[in-house]
């Protein structure tokens, strides 16, 4: 028994020594965010992150939360990660105040901190992070609205439904807000037309979104367009197809190029999709950390996209999307 314990202790010490040795020589980067591992979008971010880390031979870890959008878990993950004194912390900043202290502490300890995917709504003024790599959500929502308006009927009333996938969460509210900013401008520019919009809690599950938006469209068949703040309108496209509604009769638009959404673009039901390039959001901050750590170059903001994607682009994108590169 004693011999076995000694052997185990020795093995544990050796393992710890190896880990410590690795972290001393290698650039260590931790990525914390607000999403769980079952979110396909974040798997694409992780792929970019891992690929970049492999290229620079960094010791990297991405930490998911157990439940989607759990800020408390993310905060706890950040604390745990910083206890290991990494060289850099990459993090989404989904709340304007919750992460201020921990980011300040990290920066004070010499850790390079880069915001990724979601930034403080005040931008750089909001906290001590060095740079932000991701999509400007409100401008992206605005861009989506503007791109979709090209498909609006030339006259008659416009009735729009905006699905807030996660009410109260920055990313969803800001994207929805951006769409509604555009609609306000559009209404002001067309004072002779009846332009109205409404927002609902559309959910973050394909089946739930299909059910809720399906019910709304049933009650409001004259709806011109539905905007989703995620990709869950792909299920709404199926509802329209089941009801025999032709592609384009009710316009659909949203965010992210997951295969479900691209497939519905190919079918003609989704007219506009905004790409924020998740792979790039994982890849680029690692490169910035590498440059900052090795050459002292200051990390800079990168807008990964308000790229408007239309059905004619869908075929080319499908393969990349399935591989998690778009």
């Amino acid at each position: 028994m004693t011999t076995r314990l000694r052997t185990l202790s020795l093995a544990a010490l050796l393992a710890l020594g190896t880990t410590a040795g690795a972290s001393a020589d290698q650039l260590s980067i931790v990525f914390t965010h607000h999403s769980s591992a079952s979110n396909t979008f974040w798997q694409a971010v992780q792929r970019g992150f891992n690929d970049a880390c492999t290229r620079i031979e960094a010791d990297c870890q991405m930490i998911f939360t157990q439940t989607e959008g759990a800020i408390d878990q993310q905060l706890s993950n950040m604390d745990a990660a910083l206890a290991r004194s990494p060289h850099a912390l990459l993090t989404s900043i989904v709340d304007d105040t919750a992460f201020d202290d921990v980011i300040q502490r990290a920066v004070d300890d010499g850790v390079i901190v880069i915001g990724v995917n979601v930034d403080d709504s005040e931008g750089a003024a909001g906290n001590a992070r060095a740079a932000f790599v991701g999509q400007g959500f409100r401008p992206a929502g605005y861009s989506l609205g503007a791109a979709m308006s090209e498909n609006f009927p030339e006259d008659g009333p416009i009735s729009v439904l905006v699905g807030i996938s996660a009410p109260g969460q920055n990313w969803s509210e800001l994207r929805g807000g951006g769409v509604m900013d555009f609609l306000e401008e559009f209404a002001a520019a067309n004072p002779d037309r009846d332009i109205s919009w409404e927002r609902i809690d559309s959910g973050t599950d394909l089946a739930i979104t299909a059910d809720r938006v399906g019910a709304y469209l049933n009650a409001n068949p004259d709806t011109t367009a539905y905007f989703d703040t995620g990709f869950w309108h792909a299920a709404v496209a199926r509802v329209l197809a089941d009801r025999g509604i032709a592609p384009g009769e009710i316009l659909l638009g949203g965010f992210d190029l997951v295969p479900e959404a691209v497939e519905q673009m190919q079918a003609g039901y989704i007219q506009v999709q905004v790409d924020q390039q998740p792979y790039m959001q994982g890849f680029m901050p690692v490169m910035q950390v590498y440059l900052a750590h090795n050459f002292g170059l200051a990390p800079a903001d990168i807008d990964t996209g308000q790229g408007i994607v239309r059905p004619e682009d869908a075929d080319a994108i499908m393969d990349l999307s399935a591989q998690g590169l778009r």
Binding site: L206, A234, R238, P259, E260
Partner: peptide, 15 residues
């Protein structure tokens, strides 16, 4: 049944 109805299998379904 749900995955066949919506034509997709997502790891997050049923949460």
């Amino acid at each position: 049944l749900q995955s066949l109805r919506i034509g997709s299998v997502l790891p997050s379904m049923g949460e």
